[in-house]
Amino acid sequence: MSDRVLEIRGLTVQYGLGADAVQAVRDVTLTLHRGEVLGLAGESGSGKSTLAYGMTRLLPPPGVVRGGEVLFHTDDGETVDVLRMRDAELRRFRWAEVALVFQGAMNSLNPVQRVSTQLMDVIKAHAPRSSAMSRKARARELLALVNISADRLDSYPHQLSGGMRQRVMIAMALALEPRVVIMDEPTTALDVVVQRQILSTLAELRERLGFSVVFITHDLSLLAEFADRIAIMYGGRVVEEAASADLYRTPLHPYSDGLLRSFPALKGPRRELSGIPGSPPDLRAMPAGCAFHPRCPRAMDRCGDHSPELGVPTGHAGDDRTVACWLHPVV
């Protein structure tokens, strides 16, 4: 398909090497289409952030990508594998094609440099011949994009509020007009009101500039509103992927269902909050069979010894929905 931007195929990430290695992401395959918002949801430790770091090769040691491909389709129709790029190539690719907004709005900015310096150094790194004047103008433009007045250019990060810092980070992410922006819990550290504002800014910018977003969060109700498609991760695997409306209305995997019941719905009929009993699996000692079965309210005998494959459930028209659960036999 021509409208794919980013394809993750069989990505496996582990921490450490040898016998003690912990597999944080197992054989994940995901596709991001042009202009789409793909939500990635799961509890802490489900591997969603590791996936984001792994696919951009930003994993801090001892994290290592053990296998898979991350294919990026450029505008010229070329396909490059991010995981096999040489260092110089990777540096050119980063931020120009895939930018990131991290969780810690507070810590993502260098505390000793002005906002303008940090906005401009990325432009300079990718367009060394641009003039200082044009970089400054671009920095001003970027701040305007996220509704921050230009006189904040000379501010230091500690002089900005958390929400403003995250806006600066978003502006920075858009500096080189990337095709893809990966957002790792961009609003988690902010209060709900600011969260709302940032999301609406983001939605508006996406509409205007047409980039794709991988939005990582544990807040499924937020995704239901903002994302086009949602992938649910558990124990390092994708257990369900569907259009956000479908997933929200009829979650197939018991884990997705549990996640949905853990957050109050922002719209629609009220439902009872129940949460999911137990705690996320220990990645060093994953249960046999389906990783979720010890916590699953609908676990069957076979869940304990056979791991279900991710596939299109029988009875579903089209191939835009996949699930890995014995309750829903796949084609």
Binding site: L58, L90, R91, R94, F102, G104, L109, D121, A125
Partner: peptide, 27 residues
């Protein structure tokens, strides 16, 4: 080196030298 802003600097595609000096060593 494990601060977020250093990771961001890497993600920005800045040269190794600049990340080391202006982001990590400076702090």
């Amino acid at each position: 080196s494990s601060e977020d802003y250093v990771t961001v600097a890497h993600a920005k595609g800045l040269s190794e030298r600049r990340v080391m000096v202006a982001y990590a060593a400076r702090n």
